[in-house]
Design a protein around this nucleic acid. Sequence first.
DNA 1: GCAAATTAATGATTTATTCAAG
DNA 2: CTTGAATAAATCATTAATTTGC
Lengths: 202, 202
Amino acid sequence: MARTTRWCPTPEQLMILEELYRGGLRTPKAPLIQDITAHLSLYGKIEGKNVFYWFQNHKARDKQKLRRKMMRMQLLQQRLSFQQQPLSFQQYNQQFPHQSFLPPLFPPTFHQLPSHGSSAMFHQGMRRTTRDNILKVNLISQSNEVAESCMSKSYGRDWIDNNNNNTNNMCNIISPSCNNNRVPLKTLDLFPTTSSSSHQAL
Amino acid sequence: MARTTRWCPTPEQLMILEELYRGGLRTPKAPLIQDITAHLSLYGKIEGKNVFYWFQNHKARDKQKLRRKMMRMQLLQQRLSFQQQPLSFQQYNQQFPHQSFLPPLFPPTFHQLPSHGSSAMFHQGMRRTTRDNILKVNLISQSNEVAESCMSKSYGRDWIDNNNNNTNNMCNIISPSCNNNRVPLKTLDLFPTTSSSSHQAL
DNA sequence: GCAAATTAATGATTTATTCAAG
DNA sequence: CTTGAATAAATCATTAATTTGC
């Protein structure tokens, strides 16, 4: 007999959770979870972990849904652009013959790309960074002027063909939270701006 | 039709570029740009300058996004600090007069809500639609099987450990009450106010 | 209509990544 | 470089929704 029944949110609970989510709440901290749980328990059996998991999952799947939407749109765009402009792959391949040190990967279709583990193959030869490197890279980040100057003269054939004398192909590596969630969080005025002096985490 | 059509990255190209970026690549030098361009041209029309500009823009906008995120987090932090206040729920309800379709969202905790005696169990059997969250009307009264399993079920995971006192919010999620319409809501002090005032994730 | 079979949705866990303090 | 905290991503597992043959 199933001793392990998973939480089944009541409609009221679900409504409230979604309302909170719509209001901008994404990853509530323990105290807030506790509060929410206490109040949701008025409408049915619930535990703190249920609330925690709900927000985890809802956020993740929301993002996932958005990503898929983007993909579909991009695919459409791709098809349109291909219709407009016939392919010129050969031209580019001739122009830039492979001297690749990149692994000859780039699977044929992106559908077959492993969603998560694939990154390793792109990262060969790349090092992770320390904070020092972050600062360094920030300091030497290229200005737009340079870009424009490159652009102005034959779109920078110079920096394409020219020297690799400056450095080798060592990539500048920084690892900020390039975790660019593409989710445009619309943060409504969910909670009253309290006059409390304590700026407290969720 | 514009004779000067700008580069429109295909999904594959975009994915690979983002993969490289995620791997730490920020300002590729010319030879590397050449290699990348050669590979990306397998998936669509592309030039070296496109790769160059993509990294330029992506880096800049990523940094910008991070800044905005920080600001939003700070704002939300302030707004959400209400939870330290004991009577914050009333504030919360005041903040949402528009949610009249719901029962009092966070009713005053220490008042007994109309103890709709078995309402919790009553709602357990309700089913909901997936997409639009419309309530179905068929109310299926449910046995108390779920109720029994609630209290008896061990939390199962060691990460819900009443003894531990770390600040991991997952570990500190403890359901205040299970299957009890009257919620005492004793906020345990297991939830240390996070010490870090520097950065707070949302 | 109705269950068995199948599929989709989603709750719950596990694993990996990021950030930064020591 | 190592480690801990936080959390995002991926995965497992169960429930609901839907399909299907009768």
